[in-house]
Design a binder for these strands. Structure first.
Lengths: 144, 144
DNA sequence: TGAATCTCTAGTAAATCGATAGGGATTCCA
DNA sequence: TGGAATCCCTATCGATTTACTAGAGATTCA
């Protein structure tokens, strides 16, 4: 699948909003600064995430972006598919509908399933939980 | 992962050689014709497959390409990795060696594992077997 | 009103992709 | 020994995609 930079920026932006848990809107500039993402590029991405129903926004002073739904309802796969367009190997089917019936079809199907099994089952709530846990473990071992 | 056209050509070419089972070399032109691959493009790909140790070649009249090892020792993953370079999501690590320790690392690792689980376990002998079986089933149902 | 923010449309430099061109080097065979 | 047939090598090219940047417009709030 090979995630593009844009795709990773999108994931990081959503994660940033999740980790703030705030219901107050977060400014693009803040997300850009925290996640080290070029601001004008991020603008496009956030707008696209809004089109996809992942985020809400408010303009004007004290405007910004918020999550459109709880972190446990947003999966890595959903974000990635929306930003990257077609994901995984699924053969370019050009325009003709019927599959070309190649010896590799079965493999591609298995790859798709295996991939989906990971990214469509991982929510941002999962990521946040693991991340917090990891940070706390690190803190402990650092104290010792 | 999203296989490139070049990657798929490589797979098809190897499959073609496997399905011939012949120890006689097969000409580039023949593979190109059978698999509908632009010949000059295929030349580059076959040469690269040779560099990777998948194929042998002979020049001159009655020259061509042969498998460098039995079909059961060539996996889809090996061919793909050799032709496509880095496969799967594994983050572009720029040049700095240590991983950037992001909340997504674990996901990428899982994706890599899931992907590898499919493509590194599927040999061309498997593909050929499945393909033959499929063709025979089709023939039977066609007769009935 | 005006400052702060999101929003929308263009544009752009660099890289990659999917080829094509044109010989050169080997090998076989008559 | 001299082609003819084949693989081998390097270079180039047009189209597309990627990762961004520019700049002006639309909203919102104080």
């Amino acid at each position: 699948m090979d995630v593009s930079v844009k795709g990773e920026y999108a994931l990081r932006a959503v994660f940033e909003l999740c980790s703030r848990g705030s219901s107050e809107p977060t400014k693009i500039a803040d997300i850009a600064a925290r996640q080290r993402i070029p601001q004008k590029f991020l603008e496009l991405i956030l707008s696209q995430l809004k089109q996809g129903g992942f985020l809400n926004s408010r303009r004007g002073a004290s405007g910004g972006y918020t999550l459109a739904k709880p972190a446990e309802d947003i999966t890595v796969g959903a974000v990635l598919r929306h930003i990257e367009g077609r994901l995984s190997t699924a053969r370019r089917s050009d325009d003709n509908s019927r599959p070309p019936d190649s010896p590799f079809n079965e493999v591609w199907k298995q790859v798709d399933a295996a991939l989906s099994n990971v990214i469509d089952r991982t929510t941002f709530a999962d990521l946040l939980e693991r991340w917090k846990e990891k940070r706390s473990r690190r803190a402990v071992s650092f104290q010792i």
